[in-house]
Design a protein around this nucleic acid. Sequence first.
DNA 1: ATTGATAATGAGAATGATTATTATTTAGCG
DNA 2: CGCTAAATAATAATCATTCTCATTATCAAT
Lengths: 165, 165
Amino acid sequence: MSKKLGKLSEISEEKIRNFHEYTRLQGLKTTKQRGTILDVFFRMKGHISVEELYDIVKTVNPRIGYATVYRTLHLLVDSGQVEERRFGDGMSRYEGHSEVERHGHMICEECGQILEFFNEELETLQIKLADELEFDIHYHRHELFGSCMDKSSCAKRRKKNPKLK
Amino acid sequence: MSKKLGKLSEISEEKIRNFHEYTRLQGLKTTKQRGTILDVFFRMKGHISVEELYDIVKTVNPRIGYATVYRTLHLLVDSGQVEERRFGDGMSRYEGHSEVERHGHMICEECGQILEFFNEELETLQIKLADELEFDIHYHRHELFGSCMDKSSCAKRRKKNPKLK
DNA sequence: ATTGATAATGAGAATGATTATTATTTAGCG
DNA sequence: CGCTAAATAATAATCATTCTCATTATCAAT
Ligand SMILES: [Mn+2]
Ligand SMILES: [Mn+2]
Ligand SMILES: [Zn+2]
Ligand SMILES: [Zn+2]
């Protein structure tokens, strides 16, 4: 497979197995294209856009179409192995859930870096607030936009372009 | 102005004044179209889509174009008098901030109702978590998706369409 | 009131991410 | 192998939003 892609992690391999179990139960078929897309996706890290994924998939098999990447990503979400994110940059991003299934994101508006956070107290508080309004939470989205001021990547970017808002 | 629109609240009038102050400082001009759009917008309540706003603006002055509504909304956001929201229904929504400037939303996936919440402890916790990662928050987005199970609007919708996921 | 510089508008074209369509290919299974 | 349904690739369509550009309006200076 692609040279610059790392090895599949244990957890990724399990996700792939879960995915196949899901498609089997749904009476869906196994295809080479999906195999390639899964393999590439789970070797990437971070919050991956369709385009980022497609660009690498292309290097493995240039004949795979854009629509198939979209379809496979949707299937991955449906199967519960991957989550869709929208950070407001105009496109969906996907991530195989981290160890912590429910986490929030801090998004640096200056350098684009994304930090993740999780806090038990926060989860509890959310549920309490929902209860008060008789609301049943299916999932949540918690994003903090700002700047990772002291981080080197951000500082570097700032130096290059000091006029950044 | 349009018959079915209410009276401008004190706070809305202040927002309109602030907007004019902003445009003045920016060397921008005052136009009838913006006046109409502001007036309509601030008489509406809730989380308003561009289309919803445009539909009413049309009834006041049918010659106002869609692009002008977009442009005015962007100006309102830039001026800090209005906030943009994206709840995942494929379009932006806008709200003149409520009394509580920073609040979260609970969005019912069954009936579409939107509840707002605010909690001081939550805000404090967020800041603490951001501090730990040396992150400076400009603004945040906190959305809980689920169902407002015991609310009548939701129950009604459910009864009409019991097959709803 | 007139003018001139420039911002604003309106109509429609363009954009860009995503989804739908359709003819063709492929997987799964007896 | 041969059938049937699912999957694919290529491409067209969709749809919210943004852009273009010719025309009009604002406003400060005259
Ligand atoms: Mn994440
Ligand atoms: Mn709100
Ligand atoms: Zn940064
Ligand atoms: Zn509801």
